[in-house]
Design a protein around this nucleic acid. Structure first.
Lengths: 108, 108
DNA sequence: CTTATTTATCGTATTATTGCGATCAATTTT
DNA sequence: AAAATTGATCGCAATAATACGATAAATAAG
């Protein structure tokens, strides 16, 4: 399908799934790693570091912006990308809360 | 495309992306939440709790098993699912390391 | 042995994602 | 003004993911 029935889940579940998508592709992981460590900021630098075409990198950046985890500040003709800290922290807490919630269990 | 060029990224980046996929769908988030919060394993209860067909739930479980984050212990004719703690902790550390690595930055 | 129960898998349809060349838009440089 | 630079967007192609009905497989129950 591809028809994700988001309306059938809680907002929290849907949001966490969306945040996870930011990390669900190696190229986006690489971008987020670079931005978190301030190795790059300008779009062109990201393109140089990644083994992907400029159009493809731009699409990944667009997706990360949609999720909100990065910002893009225009500094013509460049665009400077950086981590959007509030959303970064939202992800940190959302993943942390779930991953720390495991009730240790030797199952079955 | 859909052709993810995994060979062009580091193993670490590819693995984190794969772990993120476990959380990148609301249904899988719901499954993981249920398993993490139960001391006992859950079997067919998952299908009852989710607004999805049995075949669809089974596919999500298969994907989670592929990633390794859950185990399925056969107890015929049932299968008892639970969190696979080593991989769960791998995810906890992988996300934690990255999300805690942010060099606070008002960029640009 | 037959039937019921439970889960996996197959086949299929549909939508989403990924990728890139080409082009556009905005701005800077010459 | 013309050319160069930078990044976004369009259009297309191909693969991946999502969903479900139908069916298979395995075992328990009768």
């Amino acid at each position: 399908m591809g028809v994700t029935k988001t309306e059938l889940f809680t907002d929290e579940q849907t949001r966490l799934a969306d945040l996870a998508k930011a990390f669900a592709h190696p190229a986006r992981v690489a971008i987020l790693q670079m931005l978190a460590q301030k190795k790059a900021c300008v779009c062109g630098d990201l393109v140089d570091e990644l083994p992907l075409a400029q159009a493809t990198v731009s699409q990944h950046l667009k997706e990360l912006k949609r999720i909100g985890i990065i910002r893009g500040d225009i500094d013509p003709p460049r665009v400077c990308y950086c981590i959007n800290e509030p959303v970064w922290n939202e992800a940190r807490h959302a993943f942390g809360d779930l991953l720390d919630s495991l009730i240790s269990t030797s199952c079955c």
